[in-house]
């Protein structure tokens, strides 16, 4: 009787294979569940890598582009002579179109107190060309940055502007932290 209960080699191998298969199935199922519950990813522009080439305005599948200028107010100097707002070399700091960097007048200059001005972006007008960002970064504090706005981004599988970006500044970021504002993180 004792001999009948003794595990022979064939049974041992069969049991081992069943156990291994079971662990693999349960493991794969668990992993799939974890992945399905894991975070989503969205496209975003690293402002420290961006070279303001203007491709965001022309390469995005959206018209106008889903890329917009954002002012990181923490960094803004509220300057009267804002180099993201005024063209280089202007003599009179007035809001005449010939003095402005923005081709669509998407930046509003609002007086705060002498001599400080606040600069707000009208997203409806902004086409994401990055001219203001270049002016601000090259001559000012660099508070203007380009960001992909997720209320309009289609989150394409292969982002058209990421493909064209000459500085590989566009990358996937977790959807729960979808923006990369300069004042919130520092250059790596």
């Amino acid at each position: 009787m004792a001999d009948d209960k003794k595990l022979n080699r064939r049974d041992f191998i069969q049991n081992s294979m069943r156990t291994t298969l079971g662990i693999a199935v349960v493991g794969l199922g668990g992993l799939s569940m974890l992945r399905s519950k894991g975070e989503n990813w969205v496209w975003q522009i690293d402002p420290f890598k961006c070279t303001w080439c203007g491709r965001c305005a022309t390469s995005c599948v959206m018209t106008p582009s889903a890329v917009k200028c954002v002012n990181a107010y923490d960094l803004c100097g509220y300057c009267d002579l804002c180099t993201g707002y005024f063209k280089n070399g202007v003599k009179d700091l007035n809001t005449g179109a010939e003095n402005l960097v923005c081709p669509t007048s998407a930046i509003v200059r609002k007086f705060i107190e002498e001599p400080y001005f606040q600069f707000d972006i009208v997203e409806k007008l902004c086409i994401g060309c990055g001219k203001c960002v270049k002016g601000c970064t090259q001559f000012g504090n660099g508070s203007f940055i380009l960001q992909i706005r997720h209320d309009r981004c289609k989150n394409c599988n292969e982002c058209a502007i990421a493909r064209m970006c000459p500085s590989d500044a566009i990358k996937r970021v977790p959807a729960n932290t979808p923006y990369m504002i300069k004042s919130d993180f520092i250059r790596k």
Binding site: G54, R55, T58, G89, P103, C129, G130, K131, K134, R163
Partner: peptide, 19 residues
């Protein structure tokens, strides 16, 4: 490829090099 020569002219170029 993304070579500079392959790209079309940037209509929004803001030239600051001259300064």
């Amino acid at each position: 490829s993304k070579r500079p020569e392959n790209r079309s002219v940037n209509p929004y170029e803001y030239d600051v090099v001259k300064y």
